[in-house]
């Protein structure tokens, strides 16, 4: 699928081309965008959202059911599940956005070089094939367990397996663009390679990369939760959704909400980001949209 992503967007297919019919034409996408906005606001204003200290232990309030005091109940240490779920949004968003930005930037750089410099192409693409053959979750687990758990390690560990897909996408765009008459004209006019890449190749990659960035973001948030859940993710003192679910496992039969609330938040977030990605793809990358 990604190899066909070489389609540059139709002219004029801008994101906000038609403002008014947006909600009518893409109801799911608009709902998804609103959900994401709510998550972003919750992350930004977490201390104001009737939350307490996410790490505050309260042994007297252990495993309480939902109440006016603890909206989502409390966990085995008496910590407020609502507070921790809200603060968990921060971790998820930071990881998702950081991984998307990092892997798109690195992938863009490597992909443009591979697509334009024939000599590098063969080597780079074989390396990417190899990295893609390694299951991403396991590669990330290995990276985290070798360099110790921290938020930065987790971000790097999730970024590495995401890069090859971006490289392939960018390379595919570059290979089609380099044959275009305007690039030939630029070469004939004596334009230097960096100039050609930035002025002519880069803009053609942007629509496909925006779409890819949303998918990478969703995938990164999922991987972060999986890593934390398996004990190879963010350090346990950070209230991430994966950590909450990992800690709630022993108490699942008596207090399922400790797992179900962060789990539902994670599912809703990933669903919203994926739906937004599908909508952006239909809008920005119609040739790809028709194929899948």
């Amino acid at each position: 699928m990604t190899e066909s992503a070489g389609a540059p967007a139709e002219i004029g297919a801008t994101l906000f081309g038609h403002w008014r019919p947006l909600a009518a034409r893409y109801p799911f996408v608009v709902v998804a965008a609103i959900i994401i906005l709510v998550f972003v606001l919750a992350a930004a204003f977490a201390p104001l959202l009737w939350t307490t200290e996410p790490l505050a232990l309260n042994p007297l309030q252990r495993l309480k059911p939902p109440s006016a005091l603890n909206w989502f109940g409390s966990d085995q240490f008496g910590r407020d599940v609502w507070t921790r779920t809200v603060y968990g949004t921060r971790v998820s968003l930071i990881v998702g956005i950081a991984v998307a930005v990092l892997s798109i930037s690195i992938g863009l750089f490597v992909g443009m070089l591979a697509g334009y410099i024939r000599l590098l192409d063969g080597i780079v693409m074989r390396v990417m094939d190899g990295v893609m053959a390694i299951p991403g979750v396991l590669l990330a687990i290995a990276l985290v367990s070798l360099s110790g758990a921290s938020l930065v390690t987790v971000i790097i560990a999730i970024t590495v397996p995401e890069i090859p897909r971006v490289v392939r996408l960018v390379r595919a765009v570059v290979l089609t663009v380099r044959e275009e008459p305007y690039v030939e004209a630029a070469i004939a006019a004596g334009t230097r390679l960096p100039q050609i890449l930035i002025r002519h190749v880069l803009p053609n990659c942007v629509p496909a990369l925006i779409v890819q960035a949303t998918y990478v973001c969703a995938s990164a948030m999922l991987t972060e939760a999986i890593l934390s859940f398996l004990g190879a993710g963010t350090p346990p003192e950070i209230p991430s959704w994966g950590n909450m679910m990992a800690e709630g496992r022993a108490f699942f039969p008596i207090a399922p909400r400790i797992i179900l609330f962060p789990g539902a938040a994670l599912a809703l977030m990933i669903l919203a980001v994926n739906v937004l990605g599908d909508g952006l793809r239909d809008r920005l990358d119609p040739k790809l949209a028709r194929r899948v």
Binding site: G263, L266, A267
Partner: peptide, 12 residues
């Protein structure tokens, strides 16, 4: 189905 993480699905 593509978006709900497998462990969330499992617990539900």
């Amino acid at each position: 189905g593509f978006s709900v993480p497998v462990f969330v699905m499992g617990y539900f």
